[in-house]
Simulated scan of single mutants.
Amino acid sequence: MDSSEFAPAIQSILATAREREGGGERVSVDPRSLPRAIERAEADGRVPLVAEVKPTSPTTDGERTDDPVDLARQMVDGGAAALSVLTEPEHFGGSPETLARVREAVDVPVLRKDFVLREGQLDTVAADVVLLIARFVDDLPGLLAAARDRGFQVLVETHTVEEVEKAVAAGADIIGINNRDLAKLEVDLGTFERVAEAVPENVTLIAESGIGTTDDVARMRAAGADALLVGSAIMDGDVAANTRRLTRTETQ
């Protein structure tokens, strides 16, 4: 993987990810089902939302210093079908310990959001779902299989049709399409609309990044999103109210 094509912030993230040690003891997970959580939200009349506990990031200003467990509970109270928790420490203020605390405190699936590049890094912390970014993983079929062997469900993140094809060939059954181009950190909601057509119908499809308004929610859902991953638009202000606003779009 040649990281020179990426924005400086992404190059820095990848450099630290390559150096980060894996966990010690092999992780074994009995996961809460993300697809079933999405179905339950649909049945309840809610937009299936994966709400992200994100203290900070290279693409946002400021930092939330609230207790992440309190934030997570507010998101669930607001109707989130699942949660995403950052475990990347240097650039996003996350930690495996935060994810462990959040997962213990809620009863919805929890996604580990990080830059996992090799098998040993899977053993850092138990989660229901682990993120693998197709653009960054050299052996996607091997790492996906290693994650599943530990019990993880796997969200494979893509940005292009070619990456979707790579994910499908690797056996991915949960695919995310990131509207943010990680090479330039630019966001275009049209990305999901263009790329979603390449995703097979039997795959759970998640729209990521740039979703901030109820119009954005409706647009992504119309383009085929089974669920939406939203961070900044929820973390900026009243977390429960922001979650409720976005999850109740289709019942208004």
Rank of each mutant, 00 (worst) to 15 (best):
F6A: 08
M235F: 07
G190E: 11
N179R: 11
E186N: 10
D2C: 02
E52W: 10
E201M: 01
A222M: 11
A198D: 08
V195M: 02
G94C: 11
R248V: 01
A7F: 05
I38F: 14
P109M: 03
L228D: 01
V129L: 08
A37I: 06
D215G: 09
E165G: 00
L132T: 03
M220W: 13
E186G: 11
R135F: 05
G231T: 10
T56P: 01
T158C: 15
R32D: 04
E201F: 08
V69W: 03
S57Q: 03
G24S: 07
Q11H: 04
E97P: 02
E250T: 15
Q153G: 10
L122V: 00
E63P: 00
L117F: 01
G62I: 06
G23S: 03
P35G: 07
R112K: 10
A72M: 03
M1P: 15
V154W: 01
E39V: 12
R32W: 09
E104C: 04
Q11L: 12
E52P: 05
L49P: 05
A196M: 08
A81I: 05
L83K: 06
D138I: 10
K184H: 13
V106S: 03
K54G: 04
N179K: 10
D216Q: 07
K166T: 15
S12Q: 13
A127I: 03
A17P: 02
R36A: 13
P200I: 10
A227W: 09
T204V: 15
L189I: 01
T204F: 14
A43C: 01
V27I: 15
L99F: 00
G224E: 06
A82R: 04
E104K: 07
R135H: 11
E250N: 12
M1C: 09
L131T: 02
E201H: 07
V203Q: 05
F152L: 05
A169Q: 12
V47A: 05
E197V: 15
L83D: 02
G45R: 11
V239P: 10
P31S: 13
D67L: 12
G45Q: 11
V187L: 07
A169F: 04
Q121L: 05
L14W: 00
L205I: 01
R221V: 15
K54E: 03
V130A: 01
I13F: 00
F92I: 12
A127H: 00
D2E: 15
G94N: 06
T60D: 09
D123S: 01
V199E: 00
E201N: 05
E63N: 08
T56I: 14
P141I: 11
L14R: 08
G78R: 12
R64D: 14
Q74H: 12
G23L: 02
I206P: 06
P141T: 09
V156D: 03
G24N: 06
A233R: 02
I177S: 06
D216S: 13
